[in-house]
Design a protein around this nucleic acid. Structure first.
Lengths: 124, 124
DNA sequence: CTTGACCTTCGAGTTCACTCTATACCTTAG
DNA sequence: CTAAGGTATAGAGTGAACTCGAAGGTCAAG
């Protein structure tokens, strides 16, 4: 798959794809005879995973660490498991934080709705 | 409360606090006779909320919009409630995404642990 | 009345994650 | 053969969010 197709299928610009590659996030890229990049099918998934982790607040460096651990799964399993557990802890903490915030936002919202109603009544 | 106390209690540097103020995220700041900032108790909560929202991936501009809506609660409650509901939807989506990711990471981790054990056995 | 620890503003510098531009090579349709 | 359009690299530019430092005002202790 050429870069434009990967761009199309992931919604990530070719500039950004090359940038990710430079940052070590996309290593499984071979070249055709003409030096064009040739991505395997798997690259779509990989790019999507990078995007997902990024949206969750991980830096590209942290994502690199995760992918690096996953890639070396035949070599350094115990270490990989530890890293994975650490990431999971971070994710767990984020979930807890988000749930607290959701509560807070719900409260604020209810308060605003009550105020809105009170105002409506005044106007009548 | 002076800036150093707020810095202490929120873990946000004085530089960043002043920066947030410039961005309109900390409007309830009065001045003492000597021109020192004098924060109300409430500022701690406000700063923490900014941080929390930021960690969840909101830009400072978006956070400004939320706080702006909250501040105008006597004026524009219905709109504020809508905004709040929108933010809550985003938060809900993030929670779902995180939970999916947690599952994925758990699976990866278990696989790695199994591999590690298999390797250990081979070595014996 | 000086010393040290605060505080002020302003503006420059940094890091991250892109985003774009320039220059040049490759490929395919007409 | 040429023109359009895809691809390559290198490097500059951008915007967000800090982060720092200089130059100077304030204050309480000794």
């Amino acid at each position: 798959m050429k870069i434009s197709e990967l761009e199309q299928r992931t919604g990530v610009s070719r500039h950004t794809l090359r940038y990710y590659e430079k940052q070590g996030l996309l290593l499984e890229v071979s070249r055709q005879g003409n030096n064009y990049r040739d991505y395997p099918e798997q690259a779509v998934k990989r790019v999507n995973m990078v995007r997902q982790l990024k949206d969750l607040g991980f830096s590209l460096r942290e994502i690199f660490d995760v992918l690096d651990a996953l890639r070396k799964d035949t070599m350094d399993c115990a270490q990989g498991a530890v890293l994975m557990a650490q990431k999971r802890a971070v994710v767990d903490a984020k979930i807890a934080e988000l749930e607290a915030l959701r509560l807070l936002l719900t409260e604020e919202q209810q308060q605003l709705e009550r105020s809105a109603k009170a105002q409506d009544l005044q106007h009548q």
